[in-house]
Design a binder for these strands. Structure first.
Lengths: 242, 242
DNA sequence: ACCTGAACACCGTTCAAGT
DNA sequence: ACCTGAACACCGTTCAAGT
């Protein structure tokens, strides 16, 4: 499904040649939300590396430096963009399901979100969390508390789960979504063939699997392993293991 | 019509090294390795975002376009740089230690490497592997084979472990190493305090732990969980658990 | 406060030409 | 093949000035 864009007064993409039709004194009637939304459209359609202050400004029909009224610099815009997207994660309701299932579902939702924004992957891993990241963390911590995991250990668990989830998404995305990478990516398979058969014996034996894209199954399996390991060590007195 | 500005008076040159003291015909005696090494120095000392073709060229005392003799474009240089660094991972010898200990040590070595190059973290997650990445994978696959894990499952295990390891390093680094981020980073702690006490109850209860930097202990714990989960599900008939 | 014009100090990359 | 000079089409950001 396509992300529902708030349709404001903008005419679709005719940023070609409408240079700011204003004299120094006049206002364009910009808002912070409009700038953010425009940045988002560009990032989603053309990739993060195409997202520039000048391009955002052009798509809004203003001069480049007009944006600095709303964002101190480009990283401020990036941080806001990141947090806005994070706000769309569908939190699993406080259902009666077992806490570990709820956690798994939360991680799946996070991964789906990242995959829906392939160009922003690195942002998710490197930018410190804003308000919406906290909202995600809160949901996870509550689920953990349901499972009897609190305190420092809960934070460690949360970090491990998020690391795995976001890291997995970060690894699987660029290989398939980068701009002019088609040639280089397919080269991975043929690179294996060129390796010395002796010193790369195991690699060659697994050539087929290594060439395949990581996907849902790999993610689910690893997530299950991690949760299982957490339970085995953290929940001492649990007996109702299925 | 916007006029491209090109009116350039005689500005004083102020580059560090001697500006290319050659006439069009003369050679600088560059090598691919020299270019790579110079790029590496810049990336390590000033960060990845400061690594530009022009800066590398300047540090070598050549014109910017001279580099295109050795690298097709900037991403080619980046890929080569990435693989060169990967080549420095210390592979654990084929010792008699249990396979899971060997794997854990391999992941620790990988994390240490990433942490030694804080500016290159995203590179490790997003760039497809070159020859040295294969070398790392080979070592891991052999250890897994020692543990009786082969075929598709071995690749799944390898992916899960690498995802966790590189993802963890990617998350812990930027928060402490980014250029002008000091103010923003410390803001994470105070952001928690500003949250609504009710809807962010769990977050506030864990404020202290959440504010702390993830570190060695967190990494080790998560790695142990993951490996334990893998063993529990993959190794059916193992009894000698300590 | 919100915007423009102009400028500064950069980018990656290409093209022609010299040896 | 290896390099320079010059140019093209971009960047982020700042500064002064207009309303």
């Amino acid at each position: 499904m396509v992300t529902p864009m708030k349709s404001r007064g903008e005419q679709p993409q005719r940023s070609r040649r409408v240079p700011h039709a204003r004299t120094p004194g006049q206002r364009a009637g910009l808002t912070r939300e409009e700038v953010l939304s425009s940045a988002r459209t560009i990032a989603e359609q053309h990739g993060l590396e195409q997202l520039s202050m000048r391009r955002v400004a052009a798509s809004l029909g203003v001069a480049p430096n007009a944006l600095y009224t709303y964002f101190a610099d480009k990283t401020a815009l990036l941080d806001a963009l990141f947090d806005a997207i994070l706000g769309e994660v569908e939190l699993p309701g406080p259902g009666a399901e077992p806490w570990q299932d709820g956690l798994a579902e939360l991680m799946r939702a996070s991964r789906r979100l990242v995959l829906k924004h392939p160009h922003l992957t690195t942002l998710f891993l490197t930018r410190p969390g804003g308000r919406n990241a906290m909202r995600l963390g809160e949901a996870a911590l509550r689920l953990l508390a349901d499972g009897g995991i609190r305190g420092p250990e809960a934070v460690t668990v949360l970090r491990a789960l998020l690391t795995y989830t976001l890291g997995f998404a970060a690894m699987e995305v660029p290989r398939q979504a980068e701009p002019g990478r088609t040639v280089r990516t397919q080269g991975a398979g043929s690179l294996i063939e060129s390796l010395d058969p002796e010193s790369f014996r195991a690699t060659r034996e697994h050539a087929r699997e290594l060439a395949s894209h990581p996907g849902d199954d790999d993610f689910e399996t690893g997530l299950r392993w991690l949760i299982r390991g957490i339970r085995a060590e953290s929940i001492v007195g649990e007996e109702d293991e299925p």
